[in-house]
Design a binder for these strands. Structure first.
Lengths: 233, 233
DNA sequence: CGGCATCCGGGAAGATACTG
DNA sequence: CAGTATCTTCCCGGATGCCG
């Protein structure tokens, strides 16, 4: 058997690409692999470390995360950076072009909330919750609403500013916020998307609201979910 | 060995889902499998038969296409319909909710054209070319432009109407078009996106333009590609 | 011919354990 | 903490064959 199978070791003549000039197909070549888009989602609010990403992506294996980060770095969507000496840790950060993928994440997220199978009680990362505020805010309900809302989730804090210009979200200290939600992302999602009364969550100890309680109630009503899709041809 | 491996037949305790309440993750559960979104793209301009889809998706296997169509049907994005007796063929059609996925396809397509690796000379289906007109039309350049452009690609014809309300595309007879492009989708893409002069394509026999030639030239200039992304952090 | 069932090979994803 | 090594599972793609 001198004739070994040469083809299999052919290092991927076309590493499973769609050979298609269509932009959508090319996008799938770039970010269509499993987990890729969710890794990018986790970086949308700023750089993160390997283990932070991993912790916020329940179910991804270290192995797969390594591969995705390598791939995204190779295509120019992510850069690996080393923090200055005091905390010389390595972080991953989106490039300019990487950040420009946010509309993809938003469009997909908005569309999927119409799914009858969507279950908003599942685990949720702090980043996805914050991103959802950018995506799901209803302009009509936000008209005339102007507030600074703080969120304290685990070790992180986020500041959400709502104004006539829309929703602005950043990972930042919550100083100056008129009201602060403190608790797990899932609990906050329950109040905003699940229709669970804030008071009830507080009784359960799942959520703590500090500051203007009325403002908190009004905030939770700004993000209506669209009607579920039926099987209409 | 009475102990057979029971786990493999375990009908997917969690058939590789992201257990994540985030809408984006759920969207990936619905349409994140390989080929799924491209199958939907091919149906965006109306119902198609199995073999039409297959022919327009170079590289998909019959097996995989069957699986994707079954999956999309199960989730309520596609319905299978039988045409009335004269041509009693089976076709696949998007549901209302399926059609609502078009912004996802557009957003991804627009984003990916910034990729340095994007190669617009690859094969392209007629549907993706038509969809790209909806996506890539530049409002500034279309201002005051009003025309009906016909396309004859293989067996199919498409009618594109450009007006102050934007770009409208449908699979329809080309009667009433002021100008008609006849040729392969790749050739037309060369004229519109590749900057190849129409006259040159005609000399090669790759394209035929019938009607208002000046209008044809103006049309090809309506769809500018965005600048390529650099690796800017 | 259109669509589906089945088998097979390769490779991606997942789980676990281990190392600098 | 930040990954690597290894093994298993299972998805994808190709080929073939059945059946309407």
């Amino acid at each position: 058997m001198t004739l070994e199978k040469l083809t299999p070791s052919r290092h991927s003549p076309s590493r499973r690409r769609y050979d298609d000039a269509c932009g959508t197909a090319h996008a799938l070549d770039l970010i269509g692999e499993r987990w890729a888009l969710l890794v990018m989602r986790e970086l949308m609010l700023g750089p993160k470390r390997f283990s932070e990403i991993r912790a916020d992506l329940p179910g991804i294996s270290a192995n797969t995360l390594t591969q995705r980060l390598e791939g995204l770095e190779a295509t120019g969507l992510v850069v690996r950076r080393r923090l200055p000496p005091p905390a010389s840790a390595q972080v991953y950060e989106l490039t300019q072009w990487g950040y420009e993928a946010e509309p993809i994440i938003q469009t997909m997220g908005r569309w999927a909330t119409r799914s009858p199978a969507h279950d908003p009680t599942m685990p949720l990362s702090a980043t996805s919750l914050m991103m959802s505020f950018r995506t799901m805010g209803d302009p009509a309900r936000m008209a005339g609403f102007c507030a600074r809302i703080g969120f304290s989730i685990g070790e992180e804090t986020f500041l959400v500013r709502i104004s006539s210009r829309g929703v602005d979200v950043e990972r930042a200290p919550i100083a100056g916020a008129e009201v602060v939600f403190a608790g797990a992302a899932t609990a906050i999602a329950g109040a905003v998307y699940g229709g669970v009364p804030v008071a009830e969550l507080e009784e359960e100890g799942a959520l703590e609201v500090k500051g203007d309680r009325t403002l908190a109630e009004r905030f939770t009503a700004l993000f209506p979910l669209p009607p579920k899709a039926g099987a209409h041809p």
